[in-house]
Amino acid sequence: MWDTLIINPMVNTLLWIYGILGNFGIAIIIFTVLIRLITYPLTVQQMKGTMKMQEFNKSKEYTELQAKYKGDKQKLQQEQMKLYQEMGINPLGSCLPTLIQFPIIIGLYQAIIRALAVTPIQTLDLYGHIWPAINNAAKLIPINNIFLWMNLSQPERFYIFGIGIPVLAIVVVITTFMQSKLMTPPSQPGEQGAQMAQAMNLYMPLLMGYLALTFASGLALYFVTSNVVTIAQYAAMGKVEWSNLLPGNLLPRSLFPARRQADIVQSKPATKTASTSITKTTSTSITKTSSKNAPRPTQKRKTPVKKAKTTTTTKKGDA
């Protein structure tokens, strides 16, 4: 079933593109773009679902519910579900499209690896996946797996003076990081979701980079293409947070003890001198960045000084 519905069509499309272009690297790029375009409606749906959930989380009704049932999680969940229905929100609206895309992404990777067929077992397996009516496999095999300086079936290294530099893995880390930063929506300070997003923004690029470092470079090429296309799709929908890439917003504040300490200090009752100093720092930061990307107070900031609070409220707006 998996092979029939996902793998075989993908393998044959990929080989068909390769048959036309004669370059497997470009075939992977075009094929990835094609798949991302086909799944574009799912991406849009996912984004809309996410936005609805964000609006819901910020809604007055939900905030009141949280306050009302603070000590009764079960009741809160029941009321939350009712509220979902009243507001016409499908709680799975954002994750269902992702779940549907997931097998497609895995299938895409499998299709690339199977089409490359670099071992006897893989070549034998490929025989069972090819549709002779579409692809004259006899002409195509063996696949030319060299693209630029890369052997697409091997982990990539670019050698300079005998030192192998994993260029593609580095590009994967950068584009994955960019993608996650650009697509991270503004969130409420201290939100569990925001903390998770921060963690994901940091760890996912490293994870993807590790995979790109150790797996076939055909996969890394797919990662890069997929990241770029995703950013382009979100940009086309006007949902990219470009300002998240500004130097002050690149990394989580938790990575900078000094800044974190400043936040903590700010949250404590402070002397006049100290509060002035911190307020200045915060204000400067806010002035330099856009309203959406102002540094967010940490969870511990419970009683910000008056001036800072005023500034934050005014500038952040939709934060």
Partner: peptide, 11 residues
């Protein structure tokens, strides 16, 4: 799906 370490690649 890629034949990692421990996965037979031939016979």
């Amino acid at each position: 799906c890629s034949g990692g370490v421990g996965v037979a690649t031939s016979w």
